[in-house]
Simulated assay, not measured.
Amino acid sequence: MSIRKRLLLSNLGMIVLPIIALLIMEILLGLLMFRVFHLDVESRIETFTQIRFIGIILILILTNGLLTYYVARTIIKPVRELSDAAGRIADGELDFQVKPERRDELGELAESFETMRRKLQEAEELQYKYEESRKELIASISHDLKTPITSIKGYVEGIVDGVADTPEKLQRYATIVYKKADEMDHLIDELFLYSKLDVQRVPFHFEKVDLYAYFEDYLEDVKLDTDVEVELRPQGKRSFFVAADREQLNRVVTNLIKNSLKHMDKEDKLLKVTLKEYGGRIEVTIQDNGEGIPKAHLPHIFEQFYRADAARGKADGSGLGLAIVKKIVEEHGGDVAADSEEGKGATISFTLEKWKEEEDGADLSH
């Protein structure tokens, strides 16, 4: 029942209930005075008038008191509870629950309060995660930059101190210094890109891309540059058109395939790319027969600076490659997932939205 109806009924009750009570009291009092007590007429009328006056006062007090209590319990109490909840939220306390107990305007307000409290709590938890992530990011950057810098300093000191006393040693030291500096430059580029993706400052220029044609060309280059056997498996047809930024798509595929090639430990290396259409999406699956990823690491491989390599005794790479892949795929409106069986290989899949014919000629940049 709405508050308006409740107040209307309460006001009507303040009129109707006393009248009904008075009528009942008049009847009962008349029967009592004129049938039970044997008094003279004048005494009966005087006593009846006095009792009726006292009864009217008691009836008015009782009915008004009950109705006031009813209104207070159904309206004022919930308002006070919401006021207390607002005070607790204002003080930063969010670990409680506002329970709507009625199906009226106050119940709807309580539901809105609960939704607000829950969203504020989620925002606070998210902010805490971001803060922890920021601290971890700073620590990881410091560590990843310090390692090559320390190495560079060591080799430069070797050159200055005359340790590299032959042209061959000098050449080797200089090559290592250049390689470490190049690693730092690559790390800074990836970090810069990831930061821009994180705050959505990378422009995307979507166009119609045929994934089958794209992977035909890409895998042909992989086949020529490596000793890996590659397979392209289109399921059902020979053209898979998606809306994609060609440059960022190339970055995604390059990161994933480089990651696969890096962990291939078999003599006969195999890389399979499968294209599949379902609904309004195209799914790309990249599967290798490498060493695989331990199950414990699978949920974390798309996190920034997370290196499943460390568990394999390796520490190469920036730890941002797969995190960048996830960001770019999400900017395309898709999802990315990983599966693996240790010792048998890993499978990374991502989805992209199909190109819609009505998008021909439209500007999809953002």
Rank of each mutant, 00 (worst) to 15 (best):
R117Y: 01
D309Q: 14
L298G: 07
K196E: 14
T175M: 05
S142L: 13
Q97E: 14
L271H: 08
L232R: 01
G317S: 00
E358Y: 08
V36K: 14
N259V: 06
Y128R: 15
K258N: 13
T150L: 15
E111D: 11
P78F: 00
F241Y: 14
P167S: 01
V329E: 03
K314Y: 01
I51F: 13
G333C: 04
A243L: 09
L58K: 06
L17G: 09
G280H: 12
S349P: 04
G65L: 03
L109A: 11
L109N: 04
G292R: 01
L31E: 15
R307F: 01
G279Q: 14
K208Y: 05
I293G: 10
L66R: 04
K262S: 11
D288T: 05
D198F: 08
Q235S: 15
I152S: 08
P203C: 04
D95A: 05
G361W: 00
R102D: 11
V325R: 01
E168G: 00
R172H: 15
L32M: 12
I51S: 13
I54E: 15
I159L: 02
P299G: 02
L22S: 12
E131H: 09
F53S: 15
F53Y: 14
L187W: 02
Y212I: 03
K276R: 12
H38Q: 10
L9G: 11
D227A: 07
N64W: 03
E229R: 07
K344P: 03
E132Y: 06
L28G: 15
R281M: 10
R88M: 07
S365I: 02
F240K: 05
L31Q: 12
G236I: 00
E341C: 08
V71F: 00
L191M: 02
S340T: 02
L298M: 08
I54H: 15
K99E: 14
L191R: 01
L23C: 09
R80S: 11
K354Y: 02
D227G: 11
S142E: 12
E136A: 09
V16G: 05
V228K: 07
G292K: 03
S142M: 09
A85F: 02
E220H: 08
F96K: 04
G343T: 02
E283F: 04
R246Y: 06
L298R: 08
M116Y: 06
L271Y: 04
E229G: 07
E330G: 05
D95I: 02
V71Y: 01
D84I: 05
D95P: 03
I54A: 15
T150G: 11
I3T: 01
V230T: 13
F241H: 15
M25G: 12
Y218Q: 05
A244S: 11
F34Q: 05
L12T: 03
K272P: 08
R172C: 06
K153Q: 15
S133K: 13
Q248R: 12
G345N: 01
L256E: 13
I27S: 15
D182E: 08
I19Q: 11
K196T: 08
A110L: 00
M14P: 09
G317E: 00
G280W: 07
I348D: 03
L120D: 06
K5T: 06
Y278E: 13
K223P: 08
A315C: 07
D84Q: 10
L67M: 03
L120K: 06
V209P: 07
I61M: 08
N11W: 14
F204C: 07
R4T: 11
E341R: 13
L322E: 04
S2H: 05
